[in-house]
């Protein structure tokens, strides 16, 4: 379990190391359950990020592998649901020395 949780923490920290993926997390925190199309519009028009739809799909796949995003269907559309638990868990495991030293 320790090894598994360590690997998950690695995946979480890798996922949040990228600025585009952090924006995706912010956008899903503001409005959950967005389609790929809606997230692309927000990145391109809201943040002025020149990125292809395929690249956004890859970023979302990295977030999904880290457990931060889960996909589900609403009707016939696949939407992305944000789950911050893996981030909390990674932070609790690693960030505690920082809080204790304050």
């Amino acid at each position: 379990m320790v090894a598994y949780s360590g690997r998950m923490d690695d995946a979480v920290f890798r996922a949040i190391a990228d600025p585009t993926r952090r924006i995706l997390i912010d956008e899903l925190a503001a409005r959950d359950d967005q389609s790929l199309f809606e997230l692309c519009v927000r990145l391109m028009q809201g943040h002025g990020i020149a990125v292809s739809r395929q690249a956004v799909a890859k970023h979302l796949a990295v977030l999904e592998q880290a457990g931060l995003v889960q996909t589900r269907r609403i009707g016939r559309t696949r939407v992305h649901h944000l789950d911050l638990d893996p981030l909390r868990s990674a932070w609790q495991g690693w960030g505690r020395p920082l809080t204790e030293s304050e």
Binding site: Q34, S35, L36, F37, E38, R53, R76, T77, R78
Partner: peptide
């Protein structure tokens, strides 16, 4: 159309 709809594309 299924593929477009799945990704939310109008």
């Amino acid at each position: 159309r299924e593929a477009l709809r799945a990704d939310g594309l109008p």
